[in-house]
Design a protein around this nucleic acid. Structure first.
Length: 872
RNA sequence: ACUGGUGUGCCCAAAUUGGUAAAGGGACUUGACUUAAAAUCAAGGAUUUGUGGGUUCGAAUCCCACCACCAGUACCA
């Protein structure tokens, strides 16, 4: 990184002095305080509030928060009553892991981390209304999280169940399905084991959660992820009789029309019928298979590359379509928790069934021909005939036949499971629940809230499914109004609980009687713009929608959906440089290196010699960029460059504090917005920030001369050059449009064009002020300082947003492009609004064009105000 | 494997409805200023939009195929 000789700049643009000064001013004057004001249109801009981890703010936070801040500031100036709050999602694993690691109490580390985050956030000049700050670990806050839990419980949406859960021994807790991939990626083990757990019935809202996605202004990719997660499928449940048994075997299939091809059945190993139907000679094999698969983790069971396994139960089912007896197997590729936990297998149509049939040498009956027409799919005796039909009609006919013959019915299934809602950790909301001596759960009344989290010095996970709160002996005991003794629930709620409704608490953070005043809720909701990372697609964003819908059904909120418009900022990546070496320590070109996955992790090897290669990370200060390639400063060899997610282990993180110190918050804000489109992933480039910093210095020099006085070129009544005036109005128009569409990079580039043009010219005060207004949402500190230096009262951020004069942005002369056979031949300045004939005439008469019109003109294409193309 | 996204000078990128591709920033080169460097100012080059085909008077933009990278999902019957 280039080192700035600070002394030089400080004389001119002293961001280190300016920025804290205005941050203090805004805070002390409550500049961004917002209250319900029905005379103005409201605008609710929300960030995904952070987990205040020990690592502090990173540049990814800065990106999203700057974007919302720009919108908030712009909307305020444009006449909106803006809600822009910030708070802390401070319960949960990251904070607690840190506390466990350092041995400090989570309450202390959380307080320290929050203070640090807040300081960092404030040093960015973000326009939050700090009167509305919330913290999910505050008892005044989690009291209402518990209250919402009670409402869910009352509606029957919270229940205790003994279910196979994702137990993570490393973290000492169970995890929700949605959380598993992330933790596994971090290297934690996750096992399946049955445990008694609190569940929330999110499945009851599956259809609504799916349907209502359509009306949301969200990125299509994110909606698609939620749709996939909900995983709606239509099909049928079918009953198969079991030979020599009264009980029926019910399966779920999306293709009831393939039933004639069903040549065997597979049950999940845990299916309750397995014990009943297994014949004595198969018992041993079945039991041992059941045991084997119960030990396997979910990951092992779903390992795709693995060969199919299973075993025969000895029992036979009867295919209702054709009366055939088909064997019943068990196999762990069938999941108990989906559908009925049993399937009919059609090896001709289904890849997985086919593979299984191959492995165990089971029958494969063809049911469609090469043209996808049904064959072998009719039974004249019972009137079930599919041959000759198309797929759609086949499915409909099959369902019809099944329903008429009482052996099945149409059925819709969802992949989404109920939300596993308890954690065996200390740092979370306690459940407002107690157990009587029979072990029955009983919800506490609303008056007994909050159930406080007890102070404990030993809050570490026990390493067993027993939660840490079980060690809080005094707290555990609860005496009911009936005088009986109860024991408290020792599990706590998961991280996601608090973030399910924080956007509502912001609207009325100090309310002691309600989680939120309905009047305030009605005024502010829904959230008009919500910006955050895409990693929350199927976690926070689906949980919060679920709670919101429950609250809507209870009449507690006025909208069906919480977040009308959602936008994902792209991740900011960091460059990593790698060097490959062979056994002898010789450098190998990265072009010859390949990667493969082994049990021990990823291994690099030489693509020809196959020998294993050592990989060295090279620190950024040791590399030299040249012509798009990267070389090692000393070794003088070419390195591999990649833009990767920033992480400590890769050493490619950027600390925003350092950037703020060296270049200022305005530069950091501007750079992150200028890097590229907000939604795109983009690598951090050290030299890039110098460009925007230079731009801000240029702005400064436009106003202030070298002695620190107001520049003489700014005159109250200077007459603006016509072209300058036009550019100014074009800039107002473009910046306004770009901010509306979150295209900050192009807005900044337009401002650069304007500032370059204004340099060295005489400008009037109005023009100077307009420029500052346009800049102020993006780089608020410098705009504020210059606004004051112009002799104005603070603040520029409270001024009215400039409007462009439509008459001034219209060009009265246009550049006419003349093409011959599609090739560019001339560009001519002509008056705007000429007719097609006039344009053609002018084009024909041009000398340069004439020389190319050597053949007969067959056709002339004229686009008014744009171009003329002669086709020969 | 499937789904979604991306691919434009050395790098990050811009390009209303198809209409001069490369605005803006960085890097680089040169000049001015300077004892010198930095900073500042001024000037400058490159090119056919991942590859191949198609539609069109005209394609970065629309269609087809392929390649590369990124993200998500992963036996959900």
């Amino acid at each position: 990184m280039a080192i700035l000789s600070k002394g030089m700049y400080n004389m001119r643009y002293d961001f280190q002095k300016i920025e804290p000064k205005w941050q203090k001013h805004w805070l002390e004057n409550d500049t961004f305080k917002s209250e319900v004001d029905k005379s103005k249109p409201k605008y609710y801009v929300l960030d995904m509030f952070p987990y205040p981890s020990g690592a502090g703010l990173h540049v990814g936070h800065v990106e999203g928060y700057t974007a919302t801040d720009i919108v908030a500031r712009y909307k305020r100036m444009a006449g909106f009553n803006v809600m822009h709050p910030m708070g802390w999602d401070a319960f949960g694993l990251p904070a607690e892991q840190y506390a466990v690691k350092t041995g400090q109490h989570p309450r202390e580390t959380t307080a320290t981390n929050v203070a640090n985050f807040k300081k960092q956030i404030q040093s960015l000049g973000l326009s939050y209304d700090w009167n509305r700050e919330v913290n999910t670990t505050d008892e005044k806050y989690y009291r209402w999280t518990q209250w919402i839990f009670l409402q869910l419980h009352k509606k029957g949406l919270a229940y205790v169940a003994e279910v196979p859960v994702n137990w993570c021994p490393d973290l000492g807790t169970v995890l929700a399905n949605e959380e598993v991939p992330e933790q596994v990626a971090k290297g934690y083990r996750v096992e399946r084991r049955p445990m008694r757990q609190w569940m929330l019935k999110i499945t009851a809202y599956a259809e609504e959660l799916l349907q209502d996605l359509d009306d949301l202004d969200w990125p299509e990719s994110l909606k698609e992820m939620q749709r996939n997660w909900i995983g709606k499928s239509k099909g049928a449940e079918i009953d198969f009789a079991i030979k020599n048994h009264d009980e029926k075997l019910r399966v779920y299939t999306t293709r009831p029309d393939t039933i004639f091809g069903a040549t065997f059945m597979v049950l999940a190993p845990e299916h309750p019928l397995v014990e009943k139907v297994t014949t004595s000679d198969c018992k041993e094999a079945v039991c041992s298979y059941q045991e084997q698969s119960s030990l396997k983790s979910e990951l092992e069971r779903t390992e795709l590359s693995k060969k199919k396994t299973g075993t025969f139960t000895g029992a036979y089912a009867i295919n209702p379509a054709n009366g055939q007896e088909i064997p019943i197997w068990i196999a762990d590729y069938v999941l108990v928790s989906y559908g009925t936990g049993a399937i009919m297998c059609v090896p001709h149509g289904d890849e997985r069934d086919h593979e299984f049939a191959e492995v165990f040498d089971l029958d494969i009956v063809a049911i469609t021909d090469d043209n996808e027409r049904y064959i072998n799919s009719e039974n004249k005796e019972n009137g079930f005939v599919l041959n000759g039909l198309e797929k759609e009609a086949g499915i409909a006919t099959a369902i019809e036949w099944l329903e008429k013959n009482n052996c099945g019915e149409a059925k819709t299934n969802y992949k989404i499971r109920d939300w596993l809602f308890s954690r065996q950790r200390y740092w979370g909301e306690p459940f407002p629940v107690v157990y009587n001596d029979k072990g029955e759960a009983q919800a506490l009344s609303e008056e007994e809230l909050p159930v406080l989290l007890p102070e404990m010095s030993d809050f570490k996970p026990t390493g067993t499914p027993e939660a840490p709160l079980s060690k809080a002996t005094e707290w555990l005991e609860y005496e009911g109004k009936d005088g009986k003794k109860y024991v408290r629930e020792t599990n706590t709620m998961p991280q996601w609980a608090g973030s399910c409704w924080y956007y509502l608490r912001f609207l009325d953070p100090d309310n002691e009687d309600k989680f939120c005043d309905p009047e305030k809720e009605k005024y502010w909701m829904p959230v008009d713009l919500y910006i955050g990372g895409a990693e929350h697609a199927v976690l926070h964003l689906i949980y919060a929608r679920f709670w919101h819908k429950v609250l809507y059904d209870l009449g507690c909120v006025s909208t069906k959906e919480p977040f009308q418009k959602l936008f994902n900022q792209g991740m900011i990546l960091g460059y990593t440089y790698r060097n490959y070496k062979n056994d002898k320590g010789e450098v190998v070109s990265h072009n010859d290196a390949k990667w493969k996955v082994e049990d021990s992790g990823q291994i690099a090897y030489h693509k020809e010699t196959k020998e294993e290669l050592k990989v060295e990370l090279v620190a950024p200060h040791e590399v030299v960029w040249k012509d798009g390639k990267v070389y090692h400063e000393e070794l003088d060899c070419e390195l591999e460059v990649k833009a990767e997610k920033m992480s400590k282990s890769l050493g490619n993180t950027i600390n925003p504090d350092v950037i703020i110190k060296d270049y200022g918050a305005d530069s950091l804000r501007l750079y992150e917005m200028f890097m590229g489109p907000l939604e795109q992933e983009k690598p951090w480039n050290d030299t890039g920030i110098e460009g925007v910093h230079r731009f801000l210095r240029k702005v400064w020099l436009l106003f202030i001369d070298r002695e620190g006085n107001l520049n003489e070129s700014i005159k109250d009544d200077a007459k603006l050059d016509k072209n300058v005036e036009k550019l100014l109005h074009k800039t107002i128009e473009k910046v306004t449009n770009d901010l509306e569409k979150l295209r900050f990079n192009t807005a900044i580039s337009q401002l650069m064009i304007l500032v370059n043009e204004l340099g060295g010219k005489e400008i009037n005060k109005e023009c100077a002020e307009t420029l500052l207004k346009l800049i102020s949402p993006l780089a608020p500190h410098i705009a504020e300082e210059l606004w004051a230096l112009l002799g104005n009262d603070p603040c520029v951020c409270e001024q009215e947003w400039p409007k462009h004069d439509p008459k001034l942005v219209v060009d009265d002369e246009i550049t006419l492009v003349v093409q011959v056979n599609g090739k560019f031949r001339a560009s001519l300045k002509v008056a705007k609004g000429l007719s097609k004939d006039e344009l053609e005439k002018i084009a024909r008469e041009d000398e340069k064009v004439k020389t190319h019109l050597d053949k007969e003109v067959r056709r002339v294409i004229v686009v008014p105000n744009k171009l003329v193309n002669f086709v020969l």
